[in-house]
Amino acid sequence: MKPLQEQLRGLDALIGEAMGGLDAHLQPIPGDVPVIQVSIEGREELPIFVTGSDSQLLCMCYLWAEDELLPGRRTELLETMLDLNPAVPLSAFGRIGERYVLFGALARDARVEDVATEVAVLSDNALDALDAMSEFLK
């Protein structure tokens, strides 16, 4: 299995290509699990994180935390997310600890081109989801 950084070589340029020339910046995150942060021009607040486990590559975007939800509208939000899950192209909603995420999973040996497509779609979806679901947030 190739190290993540090696596997993702050239990802920034490919993301730029996929997103009409927007600048993408890659930065490894120190820690005991390989994580690469992808910042996209104009969307720096919504970075995408790519991480690899033994069985898959995960691209994740953190949306909001549990304490940001409007009290009383949580169930509605959860139902909306479940309803949207099959409809949102390539990405799914999830939760890690207290944080809600939008993520896409790829095979562990996915090509860097496929990761670029995934990241571009995920970024668009995340921005869209945040916009659409901000009514549930404080």
Binding site: I29, P30, G31, D32, V33, V35, Q37, E45, L46, F49, T51, G52, S53, D54, L58, M60, Y62, L63, W64, A65, E68, I96, G97, R99, L127, L130, D131, S134, L137, K138
Partner: peptide, 27 residues
């Protein structure tokens, strides 16, 4: 691995002066 990644990300953003910003602010 996802939990550990999230922990690394929170820590890294925390130490860089920024943090995982509030969603509404980001938007």
């Amino acid at each position: 691995s996802v939990y550990r990644a999230t922990r690394s990300i929170s820590e890294s953003l925390g130490s860089g002066g920024s943090r995982l910003v509030n969603a509404r602010e980001s938007l």
